[in-house]
Design a protein around this nucleic acid. Sequence first.
DNA 1: AGACGATGCGACC
DNA 2: TGGTCGCCCTCGTC
Length: 555
Amino acid sequence: MAPQTRGVSFPKIVIERDSDSEQSSSSSEDEDEVQNDAGEESEKVDEVEVVDESEASTSAKSRRQPISISLKKVCKVCKKPGHEAGFRGATYIDCPMKPCFLCKMPGHTTMSCPHRVATEYGVIPAPLKNTHSSLEYVFQRQVRHHIPTIKPSFVIPKYLNCGVVRYHSRRITCLEFHPTINNILISGDKKGQFGVWDFGKVHEKAVYGNIHSCILNNMKFKPSNDGTVYGASSDGTISCIDLETGISSTLMNLNPDGWQGPSSWRMLYGMDINSDRGLLLAADNFGFLYMADARSNNVIGKPILIHKKGSKVTGLHCHPLQPDLLLSCGNDHFARIWDMRLIEDKSSIYNLSHKRVVNSAYFSPQTGSKILTTSQDNRLSIWDSIFGDMDSPSREIVHSHDFNRHLTPFRAEWDPKDNSESLVVVGRYISENYNGTALHPIDFIDVSNGQLVAEVMDPNITTISPVNKLHPRDDVLASGSSRSIFIWRPKENSELKRDRDPSRILLCGKGERKSKFEDDSGDDDFGKDTYGSKSSKTKKTNLKKSKVCSSKLKY
DNA sequence: AGACGATGCGACC
DNA sequence: TGGTCGCCCTCGTC
């Protein structure tokens, strides 16, 4: 980056010692140092020149040299002069001495990163391992653009349809659609609260706050009874929740003796259900896998170390067709594939290496032949078990989701309806300028070629949406953004089933609750900030009242 | 409007 | 191996 110059001269600070006759000792060298202004983003280095006392003692006390402090503008990242890093307005200027923040490669900055404008940049086709396979033609169609695609055009739910602002009291951590009832969405938050929302009837929702005491990390519907949900929490318990009543029982408790300090407090993150084997699987923050019988709710066997000891297992996923295959991912930078018939320490079939923490790993939803991982190295990786060799990913797609504090970790998810198993959805961390507003879109990416299929956003939602879920049957996207949940559909004014007069549907920010809602929203504390949109004008007008859109419109 | 803090990971010693 | 510190586009509260 070229050195920045500014019109205002940089102040030179001279601290005069007690002297009644001497001028300051500004020399030409001092003048050379004083070039920069007081840039608000740059860091100042104080250079203090103190005259040697012994030298001073040789002359009269009244001729002591002054202390001269000059402020030099240096980069706040590398401490070198000549460039600046940091925010300029809402845009972050990279330090050119550091690797690109987006792709982590040296030699350029985020602003000039080729991945910033082309998602498919550098995407390499999977190696042709089984070139004589009958599936080769299908594969060729995926990697060669000139071969007509067999994929139907994707239907992207990109228009905000309805939402609940401040539904939860803490940030959303997980979302799941009901397996059989189309309009039911369940949600979990950082405080452990469990929400059930009928987004077809926008105001029908409930939040249960007494099930878990901290982060609800993962939820799964019970395969044999879709009125029951399992929840895995950082309080170390697996809950079994009745959807109708919100009444729960505890299936597993890893901290029966209560808080004995952080070194012993077990937190459950990844969870999945192996319906063929009748098993509930969960994994903790120390690298261990736990199993329970999903019928009797009894814990089975001893914990098994499946990731580096002491490291968090961030996710578990059972293969959709092969009940013996289990996929796990964790903070030890690996996703691992296991054979359930013989699962013990270091018995993994494959270890999929990543450069940083793996936030999630999922088998493709229909055949399970591909694996999609989201890692904090800003890459989505596709591992193809048919055409790839599993030693390295078939494809890596650079995508901005490297942010591990304050936000729920980003997790790219497959579209369960896409028969070609190539469409994935993932929230984006880095913002872009859309007509003067900085927005964080939800990206739809075709992982067969790396192309960005769609960016889903709404000018009123300026927050980041790390949690996204595609409906198993309908063209519906649910996104969790901070404490709010939004539903997106393919058409802007798609019909919204309501049980009340649309004119009554308003968004109410804090302190602006409309009295007519007071008796409408049940007894939860978070149920009054709801809106459904039939008219985008109404939606925007109402949203402007909310802090969600009134703050931090960037650029 | 501005300060603050909860908070997870990686680098470095 | 453990402790400490710093962080790049948070977001809500006081």
